[in-house]
């Protein structure tokens, strides 16, 4: 099993978080980090675990680097039964009507194709004072615990 950390970003925060999360995960297995825009949705495999870090742009839209992945996903409609993923959304509750809607949309698409979300939906709100890196590494430790128990 490879733990695949995939990120969707515009200004790079999700990429940074992906790298931080990968450092934690490296103590638990083989880890590969990739941009969603370089990831083929047809390659998602039940053998691996996916950790997705994704922000939100516009008004609840996907960040640019996640858009082509989701477009392909919708077009290909791959069978994702048995594919496990956990997701962490970066957003800003200052965008009151569309807080974290981009990553939620991505999660909903994966779910609709049969993928199974594991653990808590992780979140970072840029309007608050929390450090995204701290929250995300804490969150991913929780994901590992949930997976270990499963």
């Amino acid at each position: 099993m490879t733990i695949r950390v995939l990120y969707g970003t515009e200004s790079g925060n999700s990429e940074m978080i992906a790298e931080d999360v990968a450092i934690v995960l490296e103590q638990h297995g083989t880890v590969a980090v990739a941009d969603l825009q370089d990831t083929d949705p047809g390659s998602l495999s039940p053998a691996d675990l996916y950790i997705i870090i994704c922000s939100t742009y516009g008004e609840g839209e996907l960040p640019a680097s996640a858009q082509p992945f989701v477009d392909r996903l919708v077009e290909l409609r791959p069978q994702l039964d048995g594919v496990h993923y956990a997701i962490f959304g970066l957003g800003d509750s200052g965008y009151a009507d569309s807080y974290s809607k981009g990553s939620e949309y991505l999660a909903a698409r994966l779910d609709s194709l049969g993928a199974v979300r594991v653990g808590e939906y992780g979140r970072h709100d840029a309007a608050g004072f929390d450090d995204a890196s701290e929250i995300a590494t804490e969150w991913v430790r929780g994901i590992i615990t949930v997976r270990a128990a499963a």
């Binding site: 790079g12 925060n13 940074m16 200052g94 840029a126 309007a127 890196s133």
Partner: peptide
């Protein structure tokens, strides 16, 4: 009043 957007500096700090 857009302090959240300024968070990118955390990337740059590194």
């Amino acid at each position: 009043d857009h302090q959240g957007t300024k968070n990118v500096t955390k990337q740059f700090d590194r």
